[in-house]
Design a binder for these strands. Structure first.
Lengths: 332, 332
DNA sequence: TTGAAAGCGGTACCAG
DNA sequence: CTGGTACCGCTTTCAA
């Protein structure tokens, strides 16, 4: 089923059919009616690949995330989608599951599809791949990875500040033995996060810290917590790399009969919706996913009128959110 | 950057470049080397639209879900993706947010992309849209919607059996006043679900039931629960349409100082991972998302050798999962 | 083994 | 307003 068949049935040229399809230029209404009739009768659906090929321009932007299962990424994705739809763009999603081959495959896929823009919300990215993207000429936004470049916008969260707020708060509550639950990821900001925690702790000599890491899932958080405690180390507070793993930590503690926050305090990061619904509700650090999504859209999709006056390097200072999973350190 | 430029640089024809790209037919190794060199030097990425257009066949399958935010849908998506990748297919995801215009748009988009197969994991679908799909000739799998048709496979869960198991269990525990927390959705199996609950309850005369519904989110479950209780009705057990809303219900109950399961029992549905991690862990009904994903792949992607001996109507009998959110009805 | 050329299904420019 | 037609970038015979 293609333009030509529709054209034949409506007794017009393919050009005319194309015109009514894109309701461009003026088409006599009787002609248009004939064409529309033919289209519906034939149940014609234009081939988007052909359209793209002929048209040149794309109207779809790509979003690559590390782990869609984590609501943090999903929220960003959703915000991007909303912004894109509002501007008449489609969005194609790709999930890497923190696997670098998947990342490479996804990036190539997006380039191959000639997306109008690409957002990479991934916590690791090899320089060669960044080059590949840069050379492709596609406008790119990175969240939390790499350094600013030509046609690349960078958004990053001041993770260090966030962690410091958490640590300072716990310190003020008397906590001295801290556990950190991270998650696996070979490169980039994740281990950097663990490093950040270590650095932030180093400012305060009397604090001792131990770390463990597993998958970025509920189960992963639980396992990491188990590993942390298995070593015999008895932290009075456990700082988790994000809310999902923190909920996993809560579960493990509950299973061991350790009460939160009475025996051990727990903190998350991101402030996903779940952090308010779990028990106890998590003390965490808010990352504005909505805003990040908007920034992504703004920098990827040029406004028709407004010249893109977008910053090329944006850093977000996260906010501390106090809830019920933290409390004073128990008297030793 | 296109085939021709690569061809020129490698001093061969575009046909040859195409051959090495698809490592098809025999290309002299020295020639191949020249081509590969040109490709990498030019950082060439084939245009997938053009490839698709010329090639005809698609190699990507589409998945449309109602609410990716709910892990139930996400798990299915992930299973489909795994199966598809294993067979060398890509998958394109679309999320409708339970909005029927989005559903229509997504279906058209998929048809326009000429996907090799389409899975619709949505709880509502207008007949006209089903026709549109049927006529498109694309192999389709529906989960929980519509009736079997030509080139359409249907997978459905025996929701009624699942609900009956829940109700019978609660009944055996002495519960007589039940609340049902559903979620909004204009058409199809969702309200059908509410109806199912009502029917199932009707079997047991001494049980009284009240219902409420809101969004399919944590917050929605909470609001619906609030509405349910605001009426003055005092259920001894609350049956939730799924685990996500159940976690929302737990939150509302906790806020009101109502203890679960001592004062009120709560049940979920789906058995998503979160149901084990929330507090208290949810008594629920298991739906095998993994298996559903596999069935989808099997029926959408024809095995190279094996002739598709797939059932066209598959019904799954869900399993009751007992955890900690249910207990005996309190003595009145 | 390799090249030439005919499409695939649209879009858009140029005449009429 | 409408038709003719030259591409868009790649795959795939058909010959050489």
């Amino acid at each position: 089923m293609n333009l030509e068949q529709v054209a034949r049935r409506a007794k017009v040229s393919t050009a005319t059919v194309s015109r009514v399809l894109n309701n461009a230029s003026i088409v006599k209404s009787t002609t248009r009616a004939r064409v529309v009739k033919a289209i519906t009768e034939l149940k014609y659906h234009p081939n988007l690949h052909a359209r793209h090929l002929a048209g040149g321009k794309s109207r779809t932007i790509g979003v690559i995330v590390s782990n869609l299962e984590n609501p943090f990424f999903f929220d960003i994705y959703k915000a991007v989608e909303a912004g894109a739809h509002a501007r008449g763009f489609e969005v194609m999603m790709a999930n890497t599951d923190y696997r670098s081959e998947q990342l490479v495959a996804s990036v190539r896929l997006m380039i191959g599809r000639r997306v109008a823009g690409l957002a990479a919300i991934v916590s690791e990215m090899e320089p060669a791949l960044i080059d590949e993207l840069t050379d492709s000429g596609i406008p790119v936004v990175f969240y939390d990875v790499g350094a600013p470049r030509r046609n690349i916008t960078n958004i990053r969260v001041n993770y260090r500040r966030g962690i410091e707020k958490v640590i300072d708060y716990l310190h003020s509550l008397g906590h001295r033995r801290l556990g950190f639950v991270g998650h696996h990821a070979l490169l980039g900001p994740i281990n950097e996060r663990m490093k950040t925690v270590l650095d932030a702790v180093a400012r305060i000599p009397e604090i001792e810290v131990r770390t463990a890491a597993d998958a970025d899932t509920l189960e992963g958080g639980r396992q990491a917590t188990r590993a942390l405690l298995a070593s015999g180390f008895a932290p009075t507070a456990i700082i988790c790399v994000n809310d999902v793993t923190a909920v996993g930590a809560l579960r493990e503690l509950r299973e061991r009969g350790i009460r939160v926050p009475r025996d051990v305090s727990v903190t998350g990061f991101d402030n996903i919706k779940l952090s308010e619904f779990c028990y106890p509700a998590l003390t965490t650090v808010h990352i504005p996913r909505e805003r990040i999504g908007q920034i992504i859209c703004d920098s990827l999709i040029p406004k028709p009128d407004q010249p893109s006056a977008i910053e090329h390097d944006i850093v977000i200072d996260p906010e501390f959110v106090l809830r019920e999973s933290t409390g004073p350190a128990p008297i030793a």
